[in-house]
């Protein structure tokens, strides 16, 4: 009897090797996410120069000695500015995603688990937010709140959670409707325990995947808003703003505006690949 517990119906060994290779690749991509987070964390240590202080000759090209990514129009080290920009960008994106996950998660789970009028009310609210053009409302919000990174993050967070609430509510609802939840209820298990042990663990993978796939979107959005001037004030290094401020140098010293943009691309690529990898890893586990 226990033999067919372990032996799957058609187990062919070579496939596990193929899966293993896929798993290794996925783990490597998740590793990239961690590397970027570490770089962001230690940006100030890694930055060779003060990012706001003019430090060398103006507009040094890429690969200059002491200034790997050159210097900008007033002689600041672009590598240092970009590193700090990465820090701001990455952690801002994580904050927005985390806030979406927390707010949307609480609302989604509450709605999905309770059903009935509370579900109706919360989802009407969510749909209302979803039906409005989020980014535009965020811009209007920031304009009303006053400019600055903090307000930008608050503005985005306000329009960002409904997406999470929708997805998480759907998953919670699906979990709550599964016979295993009814079985647990019949088995006399308390309502709280049913929610925390028989519903929530089933929602977590979806929430994680949704969030990790969303980091890239938020990085791009934040960079765009920063490009429009909805970020930190002038001397502070920020990827989108650094591109916008140096736009006029595009045809003479292209790297000055382009390098910060490439950093955004890098962050978004890593976030997307990492998100995909997390999804694959979780899907493989089920």
């Amino acid at each position: 009897m226990s033999a067919d517990l372990t032996a799957r119906r058609f187990g062919v060994p070579q496939v596990t090797i193929a899966r293993f290779a896929g798993r290794r690749l996925n783990l490597a991509l998740v590793g990239l996410l961690i590397v970027v987070t570490l770089v962001a964390l230690f940006a100030r240590v890694l930055a060779p120069d003060n990012p706001v202080q003019p430090i060398g000759a103006l507009n040094l090209p890429l690969g200059s000695e002491g200034h790997l990514l050159g210097t900008d129009g007033i002689g600041r080290d672009i590598l240092s500015r970009t590193l700090i920009g990465i820090q701001t960008s990455w952690f801002s994106a994580l904050v927005v995603v985390a806030s979406g996950l927390v707010i949307g998660g609480i609302i989604g789970v509450a709605a999905g688990v309770s059903g009935g009028w509370l579900d109706n009310l919360l989802m009407r609210l969510t749909d209302l937010f979803l039906a409005l053009p989020g980014t535009l409302v965020a811009i209007a919000l920031v304009a009303a709140l006053g400019f600055g990174l903090q307000n930008t993050l608050i503005g985005i967070a306000i329009v960002w959670w409904p997406y999470y609430a929708r997805i998480i509510r759907g998953e919670a609802r699906a979990m709550a409707a599964r016979p295993h939840v009814e079985a647990a209820r019949l088995a006399g298990i308390s309502r709280t325990r049913v929610v925390f042990r028989h519903i929530l663990p089933g929602v977590v993978p979806t929430a994680i995947v949704t969030a990790s796939l969303d980091i890239g979107n938020v990085v791009i959005l934040l960079a765009g808003l920063s490009f429009l001037g909805l970020g930190q004030a002038a001397p502070a290094p920020e990827l989108g703003a650094d591109t916008a401020r140096n736009l006029q140098q595009l045809l003479t010293q292209w790297w000055v505006p382009v390098v910060p943009g490439l950093a955004v691309l890098l962050l978004s690529l890593v976030a997307n690949l990492g998100g995909d990898a997390i999804r694959n890893l979780l899907a493989g586990r089920r």
């Binding site: 765009g224 490009f227 591109t243 955004v264 997307n272």
Partner: peptide
């Protein structure tokens, strides 16, 4: 598609 639109715009112009 993973690149920020302003970077694409700069690349396109160059």
């Amino acid at each position: 598609a993973t690149a920020p639109p302003f970077l694409l715009a700069l690349g396109g112009i160059i």
